[in-house]
């Protein structure tokens, strides 16, 4: 059996236009040997999940800095579950206050990476937690 590369969907849900972090993570994951699919800006949860399913990704990494995370992230996780894709590792990065971590984790988000996180930490987390 050939070694399947880890496939990661990097998603920007909602109206937030800040993509510096998303692009840096994309390059870092590529440099770590992963196949990275970037959704581009202004995607709805439905579009993100659609892409995740079609691409059979192992990880959905959501980037959000607009404060709408408590609303959008659980929606993405639950849509994945509805489609039988809850094996996909869902992570989040951006401006997310610590007090919201517990709520997000209860709702299917497994790793949350806030400003200042070194990129290799993200890579290691994915490698350690992905289900292939």
């Amino acid at each position: 059996m050939g070694d399947k590369k880890i496939r990661v969907l990097i998603a920007k849900p909602g109206l937030d236009g800040h993509d510096r972090g998303a692009k840096i993570i994309a390059r870092s994951l590529r440099d770590a040997g992963m196949e990275v699919i970037y959704t581009g800006l202004r995607r709805t949860p439905q579009q993100i999940v659609n892409a995740a399913l079609q691409e059979d990704v192992d990880v959905v990494a959501i980037s959000i800095l607009s404060g709408a995370h408590n609303h959008l992230l659980p929606k993405i996780a639950s849509l994945l579950k509805e489609n039988g894709a809850d094996n996909i590792l869902v992570t989040a990065g951006g401006v997310i206050p610590e007090k919201d971590f517990a709520f997000l984790e209860e709702n299917g988000i497994r790793g949350i990476f806030t400003p200042g996180t070194p990129t290799n930490q993200v890579v290691d987390f994915i490698r350690a937690n992905v289900k292939q």
Binding site: D31, G33, M34, I37, G40, Q46, Q54, E55
Partner: peptide, 28 residues
């Protein structure tokens, strides 16, 4: 590194009933 940045679907993503698959050219 063997990794890849697959960004083509961005421009096609608004068609929900079209099946889009991104593939790296270096297959196992």
């Amino acid at each position: 590194t063997g990794g890849a940045l697959l960004g083509d679907r961005i421009r096609m993503d608004d068609l929900s009933d079209v099946y889009i698959r991104s593939i790296g050219n270096q297959c196992a």
